[in-house]
Design a binder for these strands. Sequence first.
DNA 1: CTGTTAGCGCGTTCAT
DNA 2: ATGAACGCGCTAACAG
Lengths: 349, 349
Amino acid sequence: MSDNGGFIRLLFRYETRMSLHVTIADVAREAGVSRQTVSRVLNNKGEISNLTLHRVQQVIERLDYRPSSIARGLATRQTRTIGLIVPDIANPYFADIGRGADDAAHEAGYSLLLCNAVEDPDREAELLRTLEQRAVDGVVLCSSRLPEPILTDLVKRHAAVVLINRVLAGSSVICVDDARGAAMVVQHLLGSGRRRIGLLAGSQISHSSRERTRGFIEAMTAAGKELDPALTRRCDSQDMDGGYHAGLSLLTARPDVDGVICYNDLVATGVLRACAELGRRVPDDVAVTGADDTLLASLVTPALTTLRSDRQAIGATALRTLLDQLHDAQGACNTLVFQPELIVRASAP
Amino acid sequence: MSDNGGFIRLLFRYETRMSLHVTIADVAREAGVSRQTVSRVLNNKGEISNLTLHRVQQVIERLDYRPSSIARGLATRQTRTIGLIVPDIANPYFADIGRGADDAAHEAGYSLLLCNAVEDPDREAELLRTLEQRAVDGVVLCSSRLPEPILTDLVKRHAAVVLINRVLAGSSVICVDDARGAAMVVQHLLGSGRRRIGLLAGSQISHSSRERTRGFIEAMTAAGKELDPALTRRCDSQDMDGGYHAGLSLLTARPDVDGVICYNDLVATGVLRACAELGRRVPDDVAVTGADDTLLASLVTPALTTLRSDRQAIGATALRTLLDQLHDAQGACNTLVFQPELIVRASAP
DNA sequence: CTGTTAGCGCGTTCAT
DNA sequence: ATGAACGCGCTAACAG
């Protein structure tokens, strides 16, 4: 029965030229072996006589057969698919991480299920569940905005998870040493003679923003500078507009500020605009620094002093860590910290 | 037997707190109905007594049951997954398209399998096969670099394909009217009194580059300008470096050039640098235009006159077109052309 | 070395 | 309105 069905399907296929999928049964029949034997050559398993091996391989090529990933997934409980959740793929920062992750995944024969959390915690939680339903082998979760208890719960439901830029007990973490980066910037500004340094921080729910703020505070304190809350602003949005307004606010309230450390390059660019409007020269009157070393950092005038981290490497490392964790039961919970690099340009020489 | 197995599994689950998947059988048993009944409430199919409906729904919630996508995929031959192939997700141009596509996909309950072709035709072909193997419901293929016969073949193997920025007989296409965009730029420069206009083209294998070149030629001819091949350069790479070198070459060979139309904003930015080095003022001595209206277009000095197209909309439209094609057997082959918008800034007022 | 028998978790006939 | 049986395409466990 089964054979007849297959035969008829095959005929049908030839007649209509509309290739329904070739299945392992088609190959088995054509090669005159059982499906199991075909499966064995597919997975290089067991010992097979060279004769049948070649014969099966021939048929596979002739029929241009490719095993169905879904069927395989159902049988093996492995989909060779990794979920990648980022706050926004249109943000070059995350696009780079995505690129790195995709490279590493492809190299290992995995595919990436891309998910945009659109900076929304609820959406992020939903995505985590969707990925579970889709039976991904693991998840790379980037800059999670989820509160810890919820995150802990959701993470547990996956066989393997690697977090980027967010720490969580019991999970592998890849992150940038944002605190140290901020400290480097502080030291650089102090070293070049700046006395009144302001901070334009990012969102409170962003791990990297909190870390950068912490690094700022520690470095200032260590240098014996007293912290003046009036020298700090939190940007409404972490982009040019947010930087522009926060910068305007800070510089008008405190004209004595001679250095502004910004959450990222976009914010810094907004501050440059604010400076231009206020007639304050950069870097002569005030030094401005960014973070992330995005493309625009080197293109704005003056070019931005900023912090660089190899985002593609971070994405790739996250994915490889995940695969390690998947294959070795032991590599349970690593933490990997990337060190940022200070790039000195005209905005804060 | 089957029931016993399920029961034991369930016990095991409760004991270890290590939730193996809850299956439809678990729900059925707990609710005291058959699996089909559960399946029916899952898919709102058939008529079910309100009583059992509620009972089953209760159990589903209590057990936090979610049907397995892979099992469903095997049974229905639908994965609710769309493959998205782009030349490079780290390129903001494609990242935006990806963002738009993801939004539209998520809205419709689909997921996106992200694939980077890394500008490599072989890789692109391989990805198309991989997606087939993974049984995606359809593919959005962005800026394909594949030769037509091969592309035609590969496309046939998928139930539905939508191409972006690449035309192909028999396929749905979403593209930007690059020729018209280039023509608009030509007319703008001519209208502002430029006489010797050069062109820095992109790669020959890029559809948009060919189209922009065609639009340039047609508009120049239509305006009665004779085409001087010496006023054209093809950039080695379509980035700042490529623009810088091509610009240097053009402007030194032909100092009479008073307008340069560039393949994209990056190339234009490179030309700005070349101009600065040669002491040619922009826009007084020479007008420079870009394309794509990337973030940097408004940030460089002088800001770039450029062409804008709504890339997120393009991505979203592509995906919706794909879904239409998937659901209506008729919507076989649409062509949708987005019109670019000329953004006039300081580099070519 | 190879074939048989059983699932993986779900939807889809058919009965009832 | 509900249940039983079968199949999707593949791998795993056990024969031989």
